[in-house]
Computed example of a mutant assay.
Amino acid sequence: MRDSSLAVTATGLAKRFGDRRVVDGVDIAVPTGSIYGVLGPNGAGKTTTLRMLLGIIEPDEGSRSLLGHAHPRDASDQVGYLPEERGLYPGMKAVEAIAFMGALRGLDWRAGRKRARVLLEDAGLAHAADQKIKKLSKGMAQLVQLLGSVVHTPELLVLDEPFSGLDPVNQERLEALIVAQRDRGATILFSTHVMAHAERLCDRLTIIAGGKARFEGTVDDARATLPVKARYMPHHPSDDIAKLLPADAQPEGKGWVFTMPNEGIEGVLVKLIDAGYGISGLSIEPARLHDAFVKIVGREALEAAA
């Protein structure tokens, strides 16, 4: 019986190409109705993992379930997929390309054209509806292909590096589209090596490096692998301030940065005020997802991927 709380599950997925073990025992559990990220440096095994989940390639080891189906292709009409390799017929008009992709998933042509125009308008691309793909910018064509992957209102949307090659305006459009799909009840699973998108969008994520899953949890869980920092700016600067700050305090600009003490920052602030240094500015800063990613993956792995 299907666990409706999970849209995608995988246990011990492994895949070898020649002598190289590209994916090595990855577990994934994607909650229904969530935005779930698969993060990792280039060559980490993200695309291979997604393709195994979709049934495009078969794993050498492990099992997976897609929308309750042990054979992922049985759920293909309920899935929208944007592959890493983009591809549309250049001579097709945008509205026809979207309707065509819907037809491949069982959507009636007439309904597909009608939905395509609505999707293009909602994405701010109504002006491109009757333009041929070859006349569109790369970013606009990529968004058209994404709209083609959602025109049949899939339960699950799988996007492989969807932000690759997009300018900031189209990145914003794509983020808005992903959130809109989640809000209508779809589950979104996407891969990326760009932490900013994951930080803004993901409910949960898995970090993969060297074919292995190194972390699974929420963005806040990932950030919590690094300490929270405090940034303090005195009203009356002095080198002597360092004596009243935690041992790891470092000068930065006109202020100081240090790790938040376990007992809280209040005791430090009382000492600074009593000593007459005052407080011109103070901020408490959780670690960025990028910094947590670097710690989890390791700089050597990132340098190797680069």
Rank of each mutant, 00 (worst) to 15 (best):
A126N: 09
G267W: 01
G139I: 04
V179C: 00
E252W: 00
G106C: 11
S238Y: 12
A301H: 11
V268I: 15
G25C: 11
A7I: 05
D240C: 00
A275S: 08
G91T: 14
V194F: 05
L54D: 05
D19H: 11
E155T: 13
G43K: 05
R64H: 03
E61M: 11
A116R: 11
G25Y: 11
T187P: 06
Y277F: 15
L159D: 01
A180T: 03
E300W: 02
I133H: 12
A275N: 02
D291P: 04
A126Q: 15
G102P: 12
R20N: 08
L272D: 13
R105L: 04
H290K: 14
P261T: 09
R73H: 05
V118S: 13
V270R: 14
L189A: 04
R73T: 06
G298V: 01
T49Y: 11
K212Y: 00
R110L: 07
L67S: 13
F100T: 15
I28K: 02
E96Q: 12
D122Q: 15
A242Y: 01
L146P: 00
T48Y: 03
K254C: 02
Q181S: 08
S280Y: 05
M233P: 00
L104F: 07
R73S: 08
A249H: 11
L13W: 06
H197L: 03
G217E: 12
R105M: 02
R117M: 07
G211F: 06
H236W: 09
G281W: 00
A304C: 00
R288F: 00
L50T: 08
A287W: 08
S65N: 11
K295F: 12
I279Q: 06
F163S: 13
E199F: 01
R117Y: 03
R20I: 11
F17I: 08
R2M: 03
K138P: 08
A292F: 10
A129N: 08
K271C: 06
D160L: 01
S5Y: 02
L39G: 09
A198N: 06
G91E: 15
A176W: 03
R182L: 10
G102Q: 10
E84K: 12
G278P: 12
K114D: 14
E199G: 02
V151Y: 07
V179W: 00
N170S: 11
S280I: 00
K114T: 14
Q250V: 13
Q78Y: 05
N42V: 01
L159Q: 02
Y36M: 10
L166Y: 03
A186I: 01
E263M: 01
L189K: 05
G40W: 02
G165I: 11
G12I: 01
S65I: 06
V95Q: 13
D130K: 04
I57Q: 09
V179R: 10
L166K: 10
T206Q: 08
G37D: 07
P90V: 14
E121F: 02
